[in-house]
Design a protein around this nucleic acid. Structure first.
Lengths: 220, 220
DNA sequence: AGGCGCACCTAACACCGTTAGATTACTTCA
DNA sequence: TGAAGTAATCTAACGGTGTTAGGTGCGCCT
């Protein structure tokens, strides 16, 4: 008996508890982000994260499965932020300038949030984890890129041999992604055997080059 | 007195000792490479490396400063191998096809040696370390790329606004580097929200696109 | 033959991620 | 009001990590 009465009441203090739980969860994430970005993932210990907010290391495990779960959650937020930044380009009418600006903003974002970008794309993560099967956050941004390319294809802006949006997406993404990666992990940044050019300027020129290579009509 | 006699003799067994020392050094490197590539850097312990070749973990410290030194030495070898592969393109007369093939082979190398490529470019390493100031191994390859681009510039093959070899190098490198990075760390490789196209084909098309964007005369 | 140094070892330190189980604080209900 | 229960946090510990200090034995050189 006593079917525990369905527990209908929000009970006014239960919700406060939940809000507080969410709050400390957030504080953990903030501390983790701070330390991950300043010290690096491997060099940051659970104990240091906990210390920073006045908890014990084990307390974190009531909010997150393990250390990787922390990293994954942060990555998720960063994916959303990145593609939110890109989506703002949606209002630009011309699909080509839209693509050009998306490329430049991709690089800008990567260099403005270097460690986040590293987490998102450059860290070797054990398994993507089938527990996070929900809506893949990256799908939105990649789909957005695909849509833009499809639109340009249908408008007949590209050379006739370029009809596969997926292939085109991977081509234009490669350029800006590689530029960001080079600036973030530049070998010889200390003993500069390579003079890194200004990233924004390079991104602009790179976008121009790639788009001119794709376009049917040669632009000036 | 007794100025320690200059020690002229190679002493015949001294050299054998040195050869043996170099041999076990090499065996350590091989074991480390094996484990790093199969298990990952962070997941590989000094004790496991030592076990694999019948030593104690501390023995490794007589040959290498620490774990990072192992990684750095392996990276160095891989840099040399990569740029040796690229240098073989030197015999191709036309600088443009030479550049095209360099790009394609860069991607081929990266995907044929995924973990090495990760070590070289994608791993966040603490400090490049001023102890390895010798001839930077990457300089050769990058300088090779620079030379090819300078040659093409002097031949007047590129559009007039492209006169900075350094900038051009970073543009063309970005493309192939990003393509390799995407294929190596592809997010959603498990739940494929993106259909990765064949890397060799993509590399070919990417090289075409970038070079067409750079060239003065539009090619067919 | 005797001394020396090199290559390797054992023991230990401080720290790590993570788990088990106790403890506290607070909500709920009789 | 007080008993019961539960959620959040703690202490203690385990097995493992990179690394250092100091010892051991063997081979080389005088």
């Amino acid at each position: 008996m006593s079917r525990t009465s369905e527990n209908k009441t929000p009970s006014l203090s239960r919700v406060r508890r939940e809000r507080e739980k969410a709050a400390t969860r957030q504080r953990i994430l903030e501390a983790a982000r701070e330390l991950f970005t300043t010290e690096g993932y491997a060099q940051t210990s659970m104990r240091r994260i906990a210390d920073q907010i006045g908890y014990t290391a084990t307390a974190i495990y009531h909010h997150f499965k393990d250390k990787d779960a922390l990293l994954n959650e942060l990555c998720l937020m960063d994916f959303r932020a990145l593609f939110e930044a890109l989506r703002q380009m949606d209002q630009i009418p011309d699909p080509i300038t839209r693509l050009r600006l998306m490329g430049q903003n991709y690089v800008k974002f990567a260099l403005a949030h270097p460690q986040q970008f590293r987490f998102m794309f450059l860290v070797e993560r054990p398994i993507p984890g089938p527990d996070q099967i929900t809506i893949d956050p990256a799908e939105d941004g990649y789909a957005f890129l695909l849509n833009n390319l499809s639109e340009a294809i249908e408008l007949g802006l590209f050379r006739p041999e370029f009809k596969d949006p997926e292939l085109l997406a991977q081509i234009v993404w490669s350029g800006v992604h590689g530029l960001a990666a080079i600036h973030l992990t530049a070998p010889g940044k200390s003993h500069p055997w390579m003079e890194l050019r200004d990233p924004d300027e390079t991104a602009r020129q790179l976008s121009d080059v790639v788009l001119r290579g794709l376009l049917r009509e040669p632009t000036t």
